[in-house]
Write a protein that binds this DNA or RNA. Structure first.
Lengths: 267, 267
DNA sequence: CAGTGGTCTAGACCACACT
DNA sequence: GTGTGGTCTAGACCACTGC
């Protein structure tokens, strides 16, 4: 077959138009073929060629389309699967990951009960406290890669388990991608918030970073969480990203941890 | 070459003695060849055939030894490398991971300064408060998979950055594997504690789980950390495991988070 | 049965490090 | 140059799913 110094064919241009292997003058910028394929697939995902839940073409089809071997496509898909962007199902196909059927109810929530086997402590009850459109404060704008004063949405809500408030959250979303989000959509919805984002706004959260601190409940939070002012709370500031590391959500949570804990796996 | 329904040769027995593919009567228990190879390599690591920092045999050598193809060995090593048990270095070889040269000073510590680029806030100063041998309390025994009353070591210490106390830790170690650990070894040592464990006791920590809560500083912790009683602190309970998911260390830490935060990456 | 992902092989060549 | 890991290929066969 073709020698390794090779250019994957894009769909439109079967000849050779894609990124090349070690071509540019200055930087050698060698990038393995499977990486280039991974990027091509990623671009199709971003462009919406395959929507969440869809089956993507088989490895052989993609190999033919990109004019590489099946093994190379396989390695590209392998990485996308470990990044949780694709899901392989033996005998069926490879699918675009989705929050909808991904019944790990809360994608990024790491709060678990100290005792009791499952998160099956009943569904969390959600109470929206506030949902408004405003201009981004400087710090929020910085983290969401906006300019200070750009339109943002702010949602505040309380999550309760078994009738006991456990989490107070303040969520900031960029106004552009989430134009049209209303309090009705949030309160009427029964699934995870990220499933709503995906279905209604085409925004899929891919990864997130969190900064965790211990703080004291202030006069605002204490009554909402039903704890005395000064009680220790876990402050969790989460920045969630969509494809291409674009920040898309800033979430500031206060967690009660008397009977729950934040679980983390290190390796 | 040989057909896929195949048995990897162990070193000692070139014929066929290892785990077989789908042999046992009841459970089909199909396990891919590369998984079996992975387990064989893992066994060699546990047995100490290759010590931390050593180079292991080349992929071709291992392929010959196990009578499989180089690609199969490669896939086994790939997984061990992503588990941080092995480290590949192109052009040089594959090495057993070690804490010694692994200059990420603190293997599992996720506490970072809020401002300031690096963890280069100067070396942490360590002050041992206590180091004693005692009988395991029930809860400690349970987590370390010992029996209540078994011998354990308890170490309490304070970590300070730039002269300011930041972390109060209580460390529990099983008495057996850590027989001979003295306060002199801990205080005289300048490297990470896990490097000491590895060098002196042959105990390598492979992964860990953490349970995080927000708590109030009590009368014991407050003066040691230099904060008023009742101040919010991050409580981090870490259980660290060696090969084979054997628990080997229980660490209960209290972190000050006024100017630092616990960082986590979610995906 | 056909179609999909999953495993395994054998051999080629590239990139990197040491000597 | 030699030896190592890294990439890529082509083809075989296995395991699972659903028609």
């Amino acid at each position: 077959m073709a020698p390794p110094s090779h250019t994957p064919a894009t769909d439109a241009v079967p000849g050779d138009a894609g990124v090349s292997v070690g071509a540019e003058g200055a930087a050698p910028a060698f990038s393995p073929l499977y990486q280039q394929i991974k990027n091509l697939i990623l671009r199709s995902l971003q462009a919406g060629e395959w929507k969440p839940g869809d089956m993507i073409p088989s490895e052989f089809d993609l190999a033919a389309r990109f004019r590489v071997s099946q093994g190379t496509v396989r390695k590209a898909i392998d990485e996308l699967a470990t990044d949780n962007l694709l899901v392989r199902r033996q005998g069926k196909g490879t699918f675009v990951a989705t929050h909808a059927e991904q019944h790990t109810q809360y994608r990024f929530l790491r709060l678990l009960p100290d005792v009791g086997t499952l998160q099956e402590q009943g569904q969390a009850e959600r109470r929206i406290i506030e949902c408004r459109r405003l201009r981004a404060p400087a710090e929020v704008a910085r983290q969401l890669a906006l300019r200070t004063g750009d339109a943002v949405l702010q949602v505040r809500r309380v999550l309760a388990f078994d009738g006991v408030a456990a989490i107070l959250e303040e969520i900031w979303l960029p106004g552009g991608p989430f134009k049209g989000l209303t309090v009705e959509m949030l309160s009427g919805d029964k699934g995870p918030m990220y499933a709503l984002f995906e279905a209604q706004f085409g925004v899929r959260m891919v990864r997130a970073t969190e900064k965790i601190k211990a703080v004291s409940a202030d006069g605002d939070a204490a009554p909402l969480l039903g704890v005395p002012p000064g009680s220790p709370l876990l402050s969790v500031e989460r920045l969630a990203f969509t494809y291409n590391d674009e920040p898309m959500e800033l979430r500031r949570g206060l967690y009660r941890t008397e009977t729950r804990h934040y679980r983390n796996e290190l390796s």
